[in-house]
């Protein structure tokens, strides 16, 4: 009888010790890991630059026959600690239609993010990665892996024939055009 009581007491004391050892050891280990995770997840707290109108070129540089031409988009860019003024942040295809309207497409394929080529022979765009193909007006051709048309960007024609584009990247692989924010 007496022996049993002692064992029970020891058991209870042992349980408390075990629980304490696990909890205290756990806290000691979790704090450094938590600090690391906070830093790891830091990118989730940062916003991408919002789309802003950027001067890309002038009408003079655009062929009148509707053939698209590629232009780099220069903007101020922040890369972690570095800030750069006027560096390429992406590229666009600009096209002057027969009606004199200027269309702009982001060069990034909406499928998986590759750089889309323009092919003069096909008179259309072709993605070199997975063969998504688009018409010269950016519409998707049937049988392409891309979920949507090329991403059209708003164009503003300002005085002296300046062509301004509201530059923006969009999430790839989705049916809807969702800005990367």
């Amino acid at each position: 009888m007496e022996l049993k009581e002692t064992t029970q007491k020891t058991d209870r004391r042992d349980f408390v010790k075990r629980a304490l050892a696990v909890v205290i050891g756990g806290i000691a280990g979790l704090v450094p890991a938590a600090a690391g995770l906070m830093v790891l997840l830091d990118p989730l707290r940062r916003k991408a630059a919002a789309g802003a109108a950027i001067k890309v070129t002038t009408l003079e540089a655009l062929p009148k026959d509707g053939v698209p031409r590629k232009f780099p988009v220069l903007a101020n860019r922040t890369d972690a600690w570095n800030k750069y003024a006027n560096v390429p942040v992406g590229a666009v295809y600009l096209r002057r239609t027969s009606e004199g309207i200027v269309e702009a497409f982001n060069v990034v394929c909406p499928h998986a993010g590759c750089f889309v080529d323009f092919s003069a022979e096909r008179n259309g765009f072709l993605c070199p990665c997975h063969n998504s193909s688009f018409t010269v007006a950016g519409k998707i051709n049937p049988g392409s892996p891309s979920p949507r048309d090329l991403d059209a960007l708003p164009v503003e024609l300002r005085q002296d024939g300046e062509v301004w584009v509201v530059f923006q990247n969009f999430k790839t692989g989705e049916k809807e055009k969702v800005p990367v924010a």
Binding site: V31, P32, A35, G36, M38, V39, L41, D42, R45, A80, W81, N82
Partner: peptide, 27 residues
């Protein structure tokens, strides 16, 4: 050109960076 800059970024710009670097330094 990037060592100090990246450490400064961890220390002063990244979320919880000062804590992470502090633990490493003082441990």
């Amino acid at each position: 050109q990037t060592a100090w800059e990246s450490v400064n970024y961890i220390q002063n710009e990244m979320y919880g960076g000062w804590l992470l670097r502090g633990i490493h330094h003082y441990t």
